[in-house]
Design a protein around this nucleic acid. Structure first.
Lengths: 256, 256
DNA sequence: ATGAAGGTTGCAGAGATTGCAACAGTCCAG
DNA sequence: CTGGACTGTTGCAATCTCTGCAACCTTCAT
């Protein structure tokens, strides 16, 4: 809608790929160097890009700080966190919390497995939307029309032989998930990893987030993991209850 | 430099404080509602802001994803991480990694204490620049002029009785840190927490990052913590060595 | 049903943004 | 040491974008 801002913002994902110099930015934006320079300067003033010693630009620290604040403002995260920790203490596996937003599903919290794991913190990373158990739950709650349209738009990468292969299969899977009220991912993303997930609902019953427990099948078989389902669902329900009963904005001001 | 972009970007920190509706944004920006609307729309198209169900705007998921990529592009982080983990295994305390950028010091990695701790992940949060041990190291490496100017510009909040009280004291402290090559924070930020920190240097000898070990004095006294200093310094030096000897851009392409 | 409040759109004027061209600084080769 | 190529930077005039206005629409509460 606003050309100038549009161009400026296009620089960010570009720099996310890696540092770039003025010429490269100008070329990718298809604008004159001087234009690119002025846009970069404005971004720089706001701390969103940083000019490293070799004069190339990369994303700046303020961006990271902003994102941090953005996450802390998600009250679902704050409410859910202690529950996730408790669940992790009970079962020992990795616990994830995810939300859906604009065609993306994003992990917004994670408690690491207590087994030796090297999985890097993927908080903030978009998840594999066609296979992840949490993604299925979040998408299954969309209105049918939207669900169908979205399913058609998606790519269906075959991470493994058990990945959701195409749109019709995905629509069917979502239908099933919607009815049963929980979801799994049995080796659909990484061959040896299984997940069980349950939805977290707001006061109006709509799914606002989803949580999952993941474990490699060298630790527990898929069947064993499924025995945790009641526990996962109870946890999710507890979070739902707490989330529904609260004012969404005020943090800890007026309890009266 | 660019008015439109400037205004648009000003919306981001504003929304970081919490969700706001169109009117509030327009007022804070001091522009007409329609102008604010169009800016927000552009931000929305890029996924940087999200319109929640009550029509208010908040920061969007793409911002979080971008920040995530930004952090993963910091190669110092990638190199340092395994060292931080190892240090944590050896001493059991919380380990931080921080960088300086444009008048801010930012934690970019953290390994949690193995003692029961509830400190929330502060990665991405700007640190208390006048007291944190890592901040002292990073600022101490600036050219003297810059150091002085910066010290004058800073605020000196008295988090505790031991916080750095004012600019002259800070300049003196930086001088000391610069000479000795390491830094501490003994209850300057939180009464009961002590830190020891060491610098990580690039090939040219300049400080590119700093790392610290923190522990509450209910677990170890400040003196005991100081006995870890050689270990911390060795770790920092190991990271420095690895960082200096590597091509800064290429991840794992041509080892030949 | 009626009014108020907040959000949205078309339009014309105003002013910011753009690309150009000339300039400055840096690095390398001869 | 000198010349040239390259990248980044600035002043300027034309233009095109953005702005604010006013009218319109939608939603909610009275």
């Amino acid at each position: 809608m606003s050309q100038t801002v549009d161009r400026a913002l296009s620089i960010l994902p570009l720099l996310a790929e890696g540092p770039a110099d003025l010429g490269q930015v100008a070329e990718r934006l298809d604008v004159h160097k001087s234009t690119a320079l002025r846009l970069l300067r404005t971004l720089h003033e706001h701390g969103l890009v940083y000019r490293q010693s070799d004069q190339r630009y990369r994303l700046g620290a303020r961006l990271i700080a902003l994102a941090q604040e953005a996450m802390e403002n998600l009250d679902i995260r704050e409410i859910a966190h202690p529950h996730l920790v408790r669940l992790n203490e009970q079962c020992g596996h990795t616990v994830h919390l995810a939300v859906y937003e604009e065609n993306e599903v994003l992990y917004i919290d994670k408690v690491e497995s207590r087994y030796p794991v090297r999985m890097y913190s993927r908080i903030g990373k978009p998840v594999a939307i066609t296979v992840a158990a949490v993604a299925k739950l979040l998408l299954a709650d969309l209105p049918e029309g939207e669900r169908r349209v979205l399913a058609d738009k998606l790519e269906y990468p075959m991470y493994t032989a058990r990945s959701t292969p195409n749109a019709p299969a995905f629509v069917r899977e979502l239908e099933k998930v919607r009815e049963q009220g929980w979801a799994t991912d049995l080796g659909g993303h990484e061959e040896s990893i299984n997940c069980v997930a349950a939805p977290i609902r707001g006061a109006d019953g709509r799914v606002v987030a989803a949580m999952s427990v993941s474990a490699p099948n060298v630790v527990v078989t898929a069947d064993e993991l499924l025995t945790l389902l009641p526990l996962v669902r109870r946890t999710a329900d507890a979070i739902s209850g707490e989330y529904s009963g609260r004012t969404p904005v005020t943090p800890t001001n007026d309890p009266a």
